[in-house]
Design a protein around this nucleic acid. Sequence first.
DNA 1: CGGGATCTTGAGGATGCTCAACGCTAGTGG
DNA 2: CCACTAGCGTTGAGCATCCTCAAGATCCCG
Lengths: 245, 245
Amino acid sequence: MTLGEPKQGPSGTAAEGISPCAACSVRDMAFCGVLNDEELPRLLAIFTTLSVEAHQPIIDEGEAADYLFNVTGGAVKLYKLLPDGRRQITGFLFAGDFLGIAMNEKYAYSAEALGRVSLCRFPRRKLESLLDEFPKLEKRLLGMASNELVQAHDQILLLGRKTAQEKIVSFLLSLSDRAAKRSSERSPIELPMGRADIADYLGLTTETVSRTITHLKRDGLIRLLQGGRVDLPDPAALRDLADGS
Amino acid sequence: MTLGEPKQGPSGTAAEGISPCAACSVRDMAFCGVLNDEELPRLLAIFTTLSVEAHQPIIDEGEAADYLFNVTGGAVKLYKLLPDGRRQITGFLFAGDFLGIAMNEKYAYSAEALGRVSLCRFPRRKLESLLDEFPKLEKRLLGMASNELVQAHDQILLLGRKTAQEKIVSFLLSLSDRAAKRSSERSPIELPMGRADIADYLGLTTETVSRTITHLKRDGLIRLLQGGRVDLPDPAALRDLADGS
DNA sequence: CGGGATCTTGAGGATGCTCAACGCTAGTGG
DNA sequence: CCACTAGCGTTGAGCATCCTCAAGATCCCG
């Protein structure tokens, strides 16, 4: 089972009556942002909002890709597994990110809620019909896919050729950059994921992640705050560390 | 400079007069395949064919992404560099593959011809206009971008969590699969790239690539033939090795 | 047939992993 | 209110995989 229907939260009721898009804080960042107020109802008609509790699955690799999602709040991890249990996290999603571009009838990876997550869920067939109706929607998705590919190649460079410290620093900076795009503060940054998730994202072990963070802390390059928040006092120095220059 | 104009080969003349698409062996696999004979002239009007000699650059990371390409023959490597010279090859392209989806005004990586390469070159602006005219073209590109994302995530899993042997075996199998799609034989496969390129693609060194190949050879899992060709006598056994099961 | 590049093989070493113990924190229930 | 516990993070010691450095083998092209 892909999505636990019973876990559908109380926000599902918000879809009745008033438009959830009106109050949506990520509408401009998400792909829906290209639709104007007259076109939006066509989109509204096909999606439902829902929320998923922490640690609950959202999609499972290999299942039929019947739904696509927009993350409107919270954080999501995407991952793939090898038969013996080794895990690679392929990405983290935050508010405004789209879930499901990378598919092929079947989902290419699994997704799980990091904390409580709010989502808009679109039936793929219906969304594809809308793409025919609104070419600018399709153009937007193509642009987002292109951006995701650029990021994927950055991650490939990181995994293939960077040291543990460069990986950690690159990771922190990318979180900082993405927070800035969501018009949050650039620093301190939130770390909604645990050390094991960071390790599986960067191709390391939890021990190495922990040690490297301790090292950065001792060098005064980062500061650990309450609630898993991290302060980056000298972003410029970190940028240099991130690619070994 | 992105593309050495003087290197433009004699095939450039083929664009005058008869359609190069009529004789194109990869038309069905490439994105042009969705256009019928009446629509094709609109595409013909905007692109030029050219060939690039071995080891010559095709695009450079960071340059303005003014052109997109279709590979019609030969092989191409895509790569990114770190400031200190470390290199990560992010992919190899063969006949029928599209070059340039992953961009953002600027190219996200560099591309270089492995041997002599034949290309169709499209000015991006003009191609984007055509996308408005032919939505099915845009749909096809979105589908290709989606496929590329799936493959990128496979590569991320490989780089983050696979051993040297699993990486090599996965690589050989993926070449075999892609050759099969181009309706070539599934085995033996061609290796148009050197050991150093394979190493930079898999996040290894040339020595480790060489040793691992030697090891596979001793175990009878592969056979090295003339001209850098490799025979895979037992694909099923290799599939098991590829993901550690 | 010669020479440069590429590939292979070997020995030693370093980065990051494995295995293990300890500390911290938050949630729980008495 | 506090002891208890479970999960997570940190630290340490030893080790394995893969890298580095080096030399020899092979191939390819002139």
